[in-house]
Amino acid sequence: METYLSGYREVAHTADWELEVWAPTLAELLRQAARGMYALSGIQIADRPRLQRQVDLEASDAEGLLVAFLSELLYIGETEGLAFDQIEIEINHLTLHAELSGAPITKTDKEIKAVTYHNLSVHAENNLLRANIVFDV
């Protein structure tokens, strides 16, 4: 899924999964990364009940925030069986607040074990932020 300004795409990796994401802001980059991660897993959710969750996180850099946020989504997915199709993120000085709205997961094709820091770098390129995220699967 991609637009000119923000999006994600799968990159070939021998053993694991790699996702390239881009967006104008860090908050939007995290949102695209979450959408991409759900798409890689083939996650589908029910129409209802609609459920809301909040996530608050801190990290020492942008990469840390990205890994922590996606890891938290994996945790909620595994322990509560929930995934989110509406994600609002605010980031102030590497403190994140996310308002998540979603529903119970009805189908998952593949399991993501973890979000790695492998060669992870959130960097600016042509006025967009970009990052390549490798998932352990």
Partner: peptide, 23 residues
């Protein structure tokens, strides 16, 4: 592993360890 890879991001700074990959 997720928890400790995250925690060790700051530990390497504390112990002055330079690495070519944060993982």
């Amino acid at each position: 592993c997720t928890d400790y890879v995250r925690e060790f991001q700051s530990a390497v700074k504390r112990y002055g360890i330079q690495l070519p990959d944060r993982e």
